[in-house]
Nucleic acid binder design. Structure first.
Lengths: 255, 255
DNA sequence: CGGGAGGTTGACAATCGTCAATCAGAGTGG
DNA sequence: CCACTCTGATTGACGATTGTCAACCTCCCG
């Protein structure tokens, strides 16, 4: 690859997607170039902005470049269930866009940046370049695996275990994305949002976090700064086994 | 297609998969023939038999030909969470097999028959024949959509709504697969299994079903024979909106 | 007829939700 | 710098949904 091309490609804005997908399979230079060359529009998003609303017809897929977003559903009575949290490098909305009609909403959790890519371009590159297509498919399957773990989390674990589990998953995924150290991280969610993710109320989330602190499973410098002294103890309390994240065995995060 | 080929293909045993996948996209005769020609082994399964266990290395994908199966996870304390129910025509284990290591178990809910297809054959046909690959991808995305709905179901709905929702989803999927009439169906799950699917105990499932009966939302001729008098009333009670199943607008089930 | 799985019911306990008040910190305007 | 405001965190009192334990019933099958 020439210096010129490198410069050009580095400027594409889609590098986080390449890094993410290449984790699931080896790409050729041409694959990488094709990915980086995907037509797209970068948008700066404010906190709480809706990227997609349930029932919308979708035409674009959304890649996170900075900040955090959640996917959620509203049930009768107006209660909200967050079904996924997304960070830099993740394709937030492959699911909605490929299916055509959104079955859930996607909302920014913080301010950030996203890249919007036309749906047809995603499908085209996936089938023209099998390595990329397979990586995308695997990525949607890993999303599915995380959904399954979340079903088990809200369905069969008590509040303490649920919260500890979420703290573990989020921490490990942040580390994987290069966004946090092993010692801890800044949780971007309010306690109400944590409740929406775990099927609890904000009040009970607060009590549960305090209990985790009291038992020295976590420490907090500010309400959102989670410090994990002993990862193994927290993982045990959260019934957390990272297998469902399907990270590679040589991933430094698993060390 | 010659009479000879038709005969041969009808005998393949994989017809339910063709029907299922073709729902997601138009296939050519060659596509259909390639699907039906996939190498596979048909196995008869007894009730409760495990097809795959969590942490197993997987090499085959599993297609349901008859009977019902569930996917489940065991959490600390031994409680079980069913994350999906599968019926005739569905690829039960694309997820585990493509990812290589099972993140959940697959177990027969009744006696039945399955076809085991080597993983590489699935990947090969998916990329050699984009129509098939896209249909498979869409199918895994619909699975994902159902997972999301289940997260919301166990996370944010009360027992009554959860059970009513499950009854609606299962009934509609049975009808879609041609396994039930609109009037009702035979539930293949015990109340304990219903509890494992909804995050409740069998005792509470029982109380909840009795309450649904008392309110004339369902009737039962035997404990497992669910009769739905007024589908709309049950759907309202279950906060059930079939959009997440991503059926086609022209599907007779939606009429 | 006996055994077993699954369904049904009651009494009681516990986790979690609701309501409501207070507190802490960040940003804003004067 | 300070009052003001807003969001989010924290806490207490109380209530309700759901779980636990245990008994009994019903049906099917050998």
């Amino acid at each position: 690859m020439t210096a010129f091309n490198t410069q050009q490609l580095n400027g594409s804005g889609l590098e986080p997607m390449v890094r993410k997908l290449e984790y699931r399979g080896k790409f050729s230079d041409a694959d990488r170039a094709a990915l980086l060359g995907l037509p797209h529009v970068v948008k700066t998003m404010e906190n709480n902005h809706y990227i997609v609303r349930e029932r919308d017809k979708t035409t674009h897929s959304c890649l996170m470049l900075a900040g955090f977003a959640v996917r959620h559903k509203i049930v009768a009575g107006g209660h909200r269930q967050i079904v996924a949290i997304h960070m830099k490098g993740e394709m937030v909305d492959l699911q909605n866009s490929l299916l055509g009609t959104a079955d859930h909403s996607v909302q920014m959790l913080t301010a950030g940046k996203v890249a919007l890519i036309p749906r047809e371009e995603i499908v085209r590159i996936a089938f023209e370049r099998p390595a990329i297509g397979q990586a995308m498919w695997l990525d949607t399957l890993v999303d599915g695996s995380i959904f399954r773990e979340w079903i088990a989390n809200v369905g069969r674990r008590d509040a303490r275990t649920r919260i500890a589990h979420l703290f573990c998953e989020f921490g490990m995924r942040l580390q994987h994305a290069g966004l946090a150290e092993q010692t801890g991280y800044a949780m971007p969610m309010t306690q109400e949002q944590l409740g929406d993710a775990t099927g609890l109320t904000s009040v009970h989330v607060n009590r549960t976090i305090k209990a985790l602190e009291a038992d020295d499973l976590i420490t907090r410098s500010t309400p959102r700064e989670i410090i994990i002294g002993d990862w193994k103890k927290l993982a045990a309390a959260g019934d957390f086994d990272s297998g469902y994240l399907h990270m590679r065995e040589d991933d430094p995060v698993l060390a």
